[in-house]
Nucleic acid binder design. Structure first.
Lengths: 307, 307
DNA sequence: TGTTAACAATGAACTTTTTTCATATTGCAT
DNA sequence: ATGCAATATGAAAAAAGTTCATTGTTAACA
């Protein structure tokens, strides 16, 4: 009899707008595309008209859809702050969050999430564990870090919980005139004789080595530097090939500074996980942090898939 | 994973506050007390504490409950206006609503609902069908009224839909010194020799006659007047007995101006229904009107039960 | 001090809604 | 045309939500 409208529907609408299409919205909400499609169909039957034009990207909303979206924008921020207040009521507002990363590039997307987090949890002390850490997960049991971004999910470490973050493609980066640049994809053999330009991390942390060169029994010469920009400068000037996350180099590719090539017939993919101290894993602020990271990455980084 | 909070929960909380206890809140929402109890239990498990103190009336909310209620107060008005906008988008905003009543007392509670309605649907022309109408339902097929408040549900009239409104107790009103005033309840025989003071409506519209005196084969002398105040003045000065809805005389009873007595061992109950033209029955504005009437009556009139 | 009445809680059965799964359809671009 | 990405759809499964029947609890009252 009375209204069937629920917050769920409003969250779907805003996710649709933010993500750009239903499938991506579903990913953002941890639901299936089908679920959202059914939801929208239901709303459309209630309000007697389409909510948005399916084809257009970004989605164009109809008057009905726009009115619902306007409502969402009014409501959801209040819901969010209320839930934040309630979480703080339940568990207190203080804590610490020392963050360690395996690879510097992560700061690109970590920073915005950290800024957002700082605003939401002003009384949680946030720090970056400085220095070079080949094994950031190891810092957690030593109580030198609370959260680490790592590329492998290793459930064997006791007292550490892993939260899946996202999956992304790793591509080979070549100079514009590189001989390999027009191959449809690169295989292990193509790396023979090339210099691999990387971040300064151990061999076994590199997905190209782990997944492609290692299994093929190959070793290549390596050269490393910390900054992505420096790394690409080396590639552009023909000193070698890099293998980097697509999201880290998208802007350089778009500008035509360097070119890229798929690694392996089906592409090479890496994943990232957030490792956190078991005793913090359930706290509201840690849960909120992980959520913020996933969300901001999904909306910011091109071509990634949430895990 | 993400939030489980839905508008449903917020509506429950505000209904609880408005209605004063869970059972009444359930009535307001057309749900069972059990449903709301389960809902609240769920919220309490999510937020880790009680939402309100069960015993106290009116309910005293805890910090958690109060925060949720604060959220409700922010959100629900927006939801309401959004749904109003959407309803108008779908069906247009104009229409007419000519209201007929069987009994004048109804204006007491009709007025506030009408005021509210006027604010919500400014382009619906609202009128009161004046004059004296022994059969208000009859005006609907004649297209002289769109909505009528009546005491009987008569599904045989074609083209007219009945919306149940509420049920209430009808009590006998006696002067403070009346001989019958200390009886635990009145039976048909007690009315012998008494004058029945009523609104000027035909015998068969009076619930006392229909349900008690008629079946007992009794007829009594009657005297009638339009205004409740005048009617009670007659009772107070010993000219006879009245049989009136408890809600209509509650304030006089509380002031001790007259006294009352249950009619029949289990009390005498009347009901009211909203009759409306079939072609308007499904329109958003008519649905909204019926809802407003039920809601405002429930919150305003003492001792009634929604149907 | 029982008795009753009103309100709330509870567990199980049941209903409805929501979600997924598997697959079809659609529109667009190559 | 063919393939691809996005969306739609129907049926099955899962998850909520609601009711029913009953039990606790409290307070008022004879």
């Amino acid at each position: 009899m009375s209204s069937l409208l629920e917050l769920r529907h409003l969250r779907t609408l805003t996710a649709l707008r933010d993500a750009g299409n239903l499938s991506r919205a579903a990913e953002l909400l941890n639901l299936t595309q089908s679920a959202l499609s059914h939801q929208i169909k239901l709303l459309e039957s209630i309000y007697g008209g389409a909510l948005y034009e399916r084809k257009s990207v970004p989605p164009r909303f109809t008057a009905i859809g726009a009115r619902l979206l306007e409502l969402s924008d009014r409501l959801l921020p209040h819901v969010d702050t209320a839930e934040l207040d309630l979480a703080r009521l339940a568990a207190g507002t203080a804590g610490q969050l020392r963050i360690a990363v395996e690879c510097h590039t992560c700061f690109d997307w970590l920073m915005p999430a950290m800024d957002e987090f700082r605003a939401r949890w002003p009384e949680v002390e946030m720090d970056i564990v400085s220095g070079f850490n080949p094994d950031p997960v190891g810092l957690i049991p030593q109580d030198r870090a609370d959260f680490a971004v790592v590329s492998r999910h290793d459930p064997s470490v006791p007292g550490v919980d892993f939260h899946p973050l996202f999956r992304f493609e790793i591509v080979a980066i070549l100079s514009r005139s590189h001989v390999l640049v027009d191959k449809p994809w690169l295989e292990a053999a193509d790396f023979a004789g090339q210099t691999l330009i990387t971040y300064p991390v151990p061999d076994e942390m590199l997905d190209v080595v782990r997944q492609l060169l290692g299994p093929a029994g190959m070793t290549v010469q390596r050269r490393s530097t910390e900054l992505t920009a420096a790394l690409l400068q080396l590639v552009a000037s023909g000193r070698g090939i890099a293998a980097l996350p697509l999201w880290a180099v998208k802007s350089y590719l778009d500008r035509g500074y360097v070119r890229h090539c798929t690694i392996g017939k089906d592409g090479l993919y890496g994943s990232l996980y957030g490792a956190c101290a078991g005793h913090l894993s359930g706290t509201p602020y840690m849960a909120d942090f992980v959520r913020l990271v996933r969300e901001s990455c999904f909306l910011t980084l091109p071509g990634i898939t949430l895990l």
